[in-house]
Amino acid sequence: MTDTLEELMLNPVIRALFWGLVMVTAVMTVTAWTTWFERKFAGRMQSRMGPTLVGPAGLLQPLADAAKLLQKEDLIPDSADRFLFNLAPILTVGFALGVAAVVPFTPDILAADLDVGVLWLLALSGLMVFPTWLGSWASNNKYSLISAMRAVAQGISYEVPMVLAIMVPVIMTGTLSLSDIVADQVKNGWLIYRMPFTGFFAFLVFFLAGLAEANRIPFDIPEAESELVAGPTTEYTGMKFGLFYMAEYIHTLLSSAICAAVFFGGWDGPFAPGLHWMLAKSVLLFVFLTWVRWSFLRFRSDQLMDICWKYAVPATLALIPITALYTVWHGGAR
């Protein structure tokens, strides 16, 4: 039986289907309880308690939220483009989950070991602005449209430093496959501290760009609850809004997982199995991300663009030649 199972798993299609299913289920479940964690964490940071009533310590709150969202009336504005309006939330979750395919949790737990994993990652996070634009264009609401313009401007701007930042690990390890990047770190040390120490700065920029891509505070200008109500999702109700919300969390979770894999050595670590290390690193990064979110204020639109074009892009442009020269000097990527 096990033989046949192992043989089955060798078939790339079945392997991809199996791990895809596992990945989607796991990511969705974790996402649900991430919202609980974030609310609890944020509450404590603001000297509140967060959810306490549904289940022990409010642990069943995500289920209650989902039940509430499902019961909501499904409103579609009269002048909306129904097809695109319904398509946008599906696409946004689809693209967000697509990133999960290439995240290497361990050498085995990996839905698709793409040779161009980094490229796939960047492509999908670049596509993330499309559903936002699509949804707000289709809802035919001028405020949604204004915030979607902001979202797209922000998403496209931060795509540049993100691509440039992730080039540093690519140059240092000489591969575009995420699992090979981690394997290289297992052999030669994590990129966050490896000489010429450009990995650390690349991480900072990548992390910042990840925050901006996911439209999280302090980069939540498109959403800006206090000014724009909910930005691109103004016209969405019920589970369609829930899907946008979920996509944001999936994006955040996966960007911390990718940071953990690319800069913090992924599954590398003593004493415990690789999966534990990878998950622990991802969770720690996510906690840090949440900490950032609940500590800072929203940037102004021009400050946001300043940070991107005046600091992040030039910084990464300087990092790349330094890394490249150092790597060539030491006889190419190891």
Binding site: M45, S47, R48, M49, S295
Partner: peptide, 17 residues
């Protein structure tokens, strides 16, 4: 800023349930 939020994180919430 990080310090302030961290300090609050380990403080007893002021909420009265």
């Amino acid at each position: 800023t990080f310090g302030i939020t961290l300090k609050n994180l380990f403080r007893k919430p002021t909420t009265i349930e």
